[in-house]
């Protein structure tokens, strides 16, 4: 039986009186794509720094495929990492940085790397100082995806990517999963997490508040619907999945959970002029689901 890709036991990091991470017990199985969610300052990056041995835990331990995370020279043979804020050596070109990270890293699939460079439309001849935030992230992503490391730790890797590159990113994650490797993805973007992750952990104020599979997370999702109509207001009382109905003149707002069929049938009776649906941000879901306390 293969040991879990990541296991932590009462992992705690304190900066003075502040608990940046409090008693984290987490297991990520090998081959899983795990989403790590949480608002700013929740402790996601701290947890990742502890997993990588970049910071030392105040208490508790972490293991990467059964190896103590503090033994970085051994543990890192199994990890590729993309930091949240990618800083590159400004005088090196993209090609030189990939060469350095490939040669010093856990082995690299050069053919796949060249393919990724083309797919991410990365100009490798530029010195890093000329790269935008998104391009710096692309260099780090290509370096990480092209390694043979069985675990990829990605800390908010797509915050600077445009939608086309975001799509390439999701494809690359899918390819990693197909090859049986593990991805630990920290993110703000619910849609991204939903698209690629099997399981999600939610962190708030340094504590792990929930670990859920994707179907469980979908139950949290509430779509905001805005309907404008002519004539009498449609009646949505008692319709399945509809909540928080507000009528404001010729406009109607409500939130929708689960399949939209029943609500659509109820609206069909009215003279609807426009229908707008907006997915709430992760922040709104958090505030909705957990309330303001504990932030």
């Amino acid at each position: 039986m293969q040991p879990p890709a990541i296991r932590t036991s009462q992992l705690t990091k304190r900066y003075g009186p502040l608990f940046a991470l409090d008693d984290l017990d987490l297991t990520v199985a090998a081959g899983e794509v795990f989403g790590f969610l949480g608002p700013n300052g929740a402790g996601k990056s701290t947890a990742i720094r502890l997993l990588l041995g970049l910071a030392r835990p105040t208490a508790g331990r972490a293991w990467i495929f059964g190896i103590d995370a503090a033994d970085v020279a051994t543990a890192h043979r199994r990890i590729a990492y993309v930091p949240a804020d990618v800083t590159l050596w400004p005088q090196l070109t993209g090609a030189e940085i990939l060469e350095l990270l490939g040669a010093t890293g856990p082995g690299v699939d050069r053919a796949y790397r060249d393919e990724l460079v083309a797919r991410f439309e990365l100009d490798l001849s530029k010195p890093a100082r000329a790269y935008s935030t998104g391009n710096r992230q692309k260099v780090a992503l290509v370096a990480a995806f092209a390694t043979r490391a069985p675990l990829l730790v990605l800390d908010e890797p797509t915050s600077g990517l445009d939608p086309l590159m975001e799509r390439e990113f999701r494809r690359a994650v899918a390819e990693v999963r197909d090859s049986g490797r593990t991805v630990f993805l920290s993110s703000h973007q619910l849609a991204e997490v939903e698209a690629v992750c099997d399981r999600v952990g939610i962190l708030r104020a340094g504590r792990l508040v929930d670990v859920a599979t994707m179907p469980e997370l979908r139950r949290l999702r509430r779509t905001e619907v805005l309907v404008r109509f002519a004539g009498p207001a449609p009646d949505l009382t008692g319709v399945e999945g509809v909540d928080g109905v507000q009528v404001d003149g010729p406009a109607l707002r409500f939130t929708l959970t689960g399949p939209p069929g029943p609500a659509m049938r109820a609206l069909a009776a009215a003279d609807v002029t426009t229908l707008t649906m907006r997915e709430p941000t992760l922040e709104e879901i958090f505030l909705d689901y957990y309330g303001e306390s504990g932030r």
Partner: peptide
Amino acid sequence: TDGRLTSLYAQPVSRTR
């Protein structure tokens, strides 16, 4: 401090090395 070394510290290389 500015993060240029982060990618090397994340490699299978000990800090001492």
